[in-house]
Computed example of a mutant assay.
Amino acid sequence: MRGSLAINRRTVFKLRQIGIATLGSVKIKILLCGCVALTLLAVANRNRDGSSSLWGWTSDVASLDRSSSPRGRYAIVMNTWKRYDLLKKSISHYASCPRLDSIHIIWSEPNSPSDPLKRFLNHVIFLNSRNGRQVELIFDINKEDSLNNRFKEIKDLETDAVFSIDDDVIFPCSSIEFAFTVWQSAPDTMVGYVPRMHWVDETKGKDKYGYGGWWSVWWTGTYSMVLSKAAFFHKKYLKLYTDEMPASIKEYITRNRNCEDIAMSFLVANATGAPPIWVKGKIFEIGSTGISSLGGHSERRTQCLNKFVAEFGRMPLVSTSLKAVDSRNVWFW
């Protein structure tokens, strides 16, 4: 009797162990299936490039106001110079960006834009019109050939946000939309993709500075400028640059054909006392070379820094290590 009872207990105990193991296995399988499902959802979310987020709510880009209000849209101000193929590629791309209100092409060439070029660009704009509304395309014609032209005040500009861009770089519309949302959170500062830095050059004195390119930013993890070849800023800085930038600095920029982007960084930092914001994004260079590829580029930029410090009477640039990253497009952030 006792022997049979012991056997029954052992049998019940084994059955219980088998049940627990089976239940645990089922739980593990359910958990693994859930992980796989979430992974597939994440991949699908990334491929949609700006549609719903992983958990099903509408993404920031899709839910933000797409009206024509100053806060809901932005204007592109594009600098160009005798690179018509690049200009066509750039306009063809940016015309499709959803919250773009207008494109202003800064034209400083001796000859006016040709009729075939105008027809092509206007046709591209027409093809990208949505809901009966199309982006406004404007050529801002300048008599003088100067890099200062890219920061001239634009009268009757309807948007607060200006996206300053060169004609030889392209960013995905989704990346621009993200940078725009970052700028909306800090509309008084510059928000851009190309960081640069400065440092005190103690070998030349405590009031002398050096200019650091991308590798300096990469090495130190800090920056104090974002270049206007790809940056958002408030339209009020165009007026401030036009009316308040010292004439000596403008003349220096025109004469040396360099450093207008550093001057704008000085202007904004001097007005805000705050650093810019670097946004991580994909950059596609469609041009061959630029002034940064020429010998002595860093030395000339260093000269600009010290020239501008002397004119401003101080160093207004503020260093930071902040970087804005769109977490929807990365696995680990």
Rank of each mutant, 00 (worst) to 15 (best):
M1Y: 14
S4G: 12
I7P: 08
N8S: 06
L15D: 03
L15A: 10
I20C: 01
L23W: 15
L23E: 02
G24I: 00
I30E: 13
L32P: 06
C35R: 13
T39E: 09
A42G: 07
A44M: 14
N45P: 07
N45D: 15
R46Q: 09
G50I: 06
S51W: 15
S53V: 15
L54N: 01
W57R: 03
S59L: 08
D60V: 08
L64V: 14
R66W: 14
P70G: 06
R71G: 13
G72Q: 11
Y74W: 03
I76M: 03
M78Q: 00
N79G: 12
T80D: 01
L87P: 04
D101T: 03
D115M: 15
L117Q: 01
L117H: 01
F120N: 05
N122Q: 12
F139I: 04
F139P: 04
I141P: 01
E144V: 13
F151A: 03
K152Q: 14
E158V: 04
E158L: 03
E158Y: 08
T159Y: 09
D160P: 01
A161P: 00
V162N: 04
F163C: 00
I165D: 06
I165N: 06
I170D: 05
F171N: 08
C173G: 02
S175G: 09
E177S: 05
E177G: 00
F178H: 11
D188V: 04
T189Y: 01
M190W: 01
V194F: 15
P195K: 12
M197L: 07
E202C: 04
T203Q: 10
T203D: 10
G205C: 02
G210D: 08
G213F: 08
W214N: 06
W215Y: 14
V217D: 03
V217R: 08
W219Y: 04
W219G: 09
M225N: 03
A231C: 06
K235S: 05
T242F: 06
S248F: 04
I249G: 03
N256T: 10
M264W: 01
M264L: 11
F266R: 00
A269C: 10
N270H: 09
K280L: 08
K282N: 12
F284K: 11
E285R: 15
G290D: 13
S293Q: 13
G295Q: 02
H297Y: 15
F312G: 08
F312I: 03
F312A: 09
G313T: 04
M315Q: 02
V318M: 02
T320F: 07
L322V: 15
V325N: 02
S327L: 11
N329A: 03
